[in-house]
């Protein structure tokens, strides 16, 4: 089963939930898809067993063949190519690897080379398998790195995906193909606002989902009212409690220290299985 953990905004405790969930089940793979700022490993201190670069193809020009006609630069929608009167420049961080320039070049001067945009880290913490992607600084394309992370999914495992925050393409790339999505939110007006946007997206891509309310007790009841109205199950409430907050600030997943919570997360998985029809 593949469960994605997402939230409409950062700082709702999404990663904490993903990590605690992963620690509460067996035969598990935790994939951190927040490749711009992966942080599940900070809570788990895994042993990194190996790393693998992630590449995208970008054009390279054989200047012996090029006659500086400028067709490639004209074609490129992303302005990744500049053609001067006797010089051609490629800007790999703007290229979207569409391959069009190579096709359009009348002199066949363009071929592809590999450009590194990120790294996959393969780690383990006890029985838990953790894989996280890290986008290179300044590289704008998170999606290919997320794809590379998701390629590591093993079908016979329980897979938890820690999604990036928000509702942009990287989030959709992470969540699509999951059996269930857990949305982590806060019972505040901001939490509600972002929850509504995320719910719309999930309804669009047709993935069953439920909500975990983190820091329950702060804010108001509007998140609950919204869930009731939309018939969205509230799967779990994590109260705003000193012990939990303290463990969080120490970077310790709280279910490791509070056995009661480990049970709650176990039960949560069972509930999710039912909702997902697995």
């Amino acid at each position: 089963m593949i469960i994605a953990v997402a939230s409409g905004k950062g700082g709702t405790g999404k990663t904490t939930v993903a990590v605690n969930l992963a620690l509460s089940i067996s035969n598990v793979q935790l994939l951190d898809c927040d490749v711009e700022e992966p942080n599940a490993h900070l809570l788990l201190n895994p042993k990194i067993n190996r790393k693998e670069p992630v590449y995208i193809p970008v054009p390279t020009v054989n200047e012996k063949l090029c006659n500086y006609c400028g067709k490639c630069s004209e074609f490129c929608e992303y302005n990744a190519i500049f053609v001067g009167s006797n010089k051609i420049l490629i800007f790999p961080e703007l290229c979207h690897s569409c391959g069009g320039c190579a096709l359009i070049c009348p002199k066949k001067a363009i071929s592809e080379k590999q450009h590194k945009i990120g790294t996959l880290n393969f780690g383990s913490a006890g029985n838990l398998e953790l894989i996280y992607g890290k986008l290179e600084v300044g590289e704008p394309l998170a999606v290919p790195v997320i794809k590379a992370v998701k390629k590591q999914i093993k079908n016979d495992k329980n897979v938890i995906l820690d999604s990036p925050p928000g509702t942009s393409c990287p989030v959709i790339e992470t969540v699509k193909g999951s059996d269930y999505c857990i949305l982590v939110t806060e019972p505040t007006p901001f939490g509600l606002h972002d929850l509504k946007i995320t719910v719309e997206v999930l309804e669009d891509i047709n993935i069953p989902f439920g909500v975990i309310v983190n820091r329950a007790g702060i804010g108001d009841r509007k998140v609950y009212d919204f869930c009731k109205e939309k018939e969205i199950p509230v799967l779990l409430e994590i109260p705003y409690e000193r012990v939990i907050a303290e463990l969080y600030s120490q970077g310790v997943p709280f279910s490791l220290k509070i056995p009661e919570w480990k049970e709650k997360f176990k039960m949560l998985i069972e509930t999710v299985k039912e909702y997902a029809g697995k």
Binding site: K9, E77, Y78, L141, A142, P164, G166, S168, C169, P170
Partner: peptide, 12 residues
């Protein structure tokens, strides 16, 4: 900042 950048849908 990250929040802002993330709202831009990359055309990928």
């Amino acid at each position: 900042g990250r929040g802002w950048r993330r709202r831009y849908p990359p055309p990928y």
